[in-house]
């Protein structure tokens, strides 16, 4: 039993879906790091809303109705061969439709159309020294900063002292 294994079990125990085993209890009692994480996880789990009561029959039949509607493409039906000019016309129509619906800078509404981000390989956390973990975390923070959309406005807190001084000079004249 190590800290990582205990950490992995905390959310489900905190939500009451399972209980601690003997070895886990012993570790928790003797490890201040895990004890403080356990306190946090318990508090956070109390923010979890209960599973709502849903009419699953209504949802299921609604899904089947939508999938059976003539406008929908049924994925498991074999596709008919279509001639080249028909494909061209269809593609042109799709482009027009996309521009009309989403606009030139709009986002496609369907998650399935979004290409998955290239996965990044990460070493196992257990084997890392504190300093190494910090370096990895710092690189992720940078990645997140780089992912900000173009034109995102920097906040004052993001500016260096020199940049802030320049800005203040401009504002004050």
């Amino acid at each position: 039993m190590n800290c990582e294994q205990l950490s992995d079990r905390m959310p489900e125990v905190a939500r009451g879906e399972t209980e601690w085993g003997v070895a886990e209890r012993e570790h928790l009692a003797g490890c201040p790091e895990c004890a403080s994480e356990w306190r946090l996880v318990r508090i956070a789990a109390r923010g979890s809303v209960p599973i709502p009561e849903l009419d699953l029959d209504a949802i299921t039949s609604g899904v089947h109705r939508a999938m059976a509607a003539p406008a929908q493409v049924v994925p498991f039906r074999p596709r008919r061969r279509v001639s080249g000019w028909a494909v061209g016309l269809a593609a042109a129509a799709m482009v027009l439709l996309a521009v009309a619906v989403w606009g030139p800078t709009g986002d496609a509404p369907d998650v399935a159309a979004v290409p998955a981000r290239e996965p990044t390989l990460l070493p196992e956390l257990d084997g890392l020294l504190e300093g190494e973990l910090e370096v990895i975390l710092a690189s992720y923070e940078q990645d997140e900063a780089a992912e900000q959309p173009l034109g995102a406005v920097p906040r004052l807190g993001d500016l260096t002292d020199a940049e802030l001084e320049l800005l203040m000079e401009e504002v004050e004249g």
Binding site: G47, S48, V49, P52, L54, D55, A58, I59, G62, V63, A66, M67, Q72, V73, P75, D110, V111, A112, A113, V114
Partner: peptide
Amino acid sequence: SRGAASSELEDLVQEVFIRAFQGLDG
């Protein structure tokens, strides 16, 4: 938990599955 009203939950969940089944190739 992310702010949807109780009254619209079933419609939203249904929409998730419709999008999922339509886009299973993804």
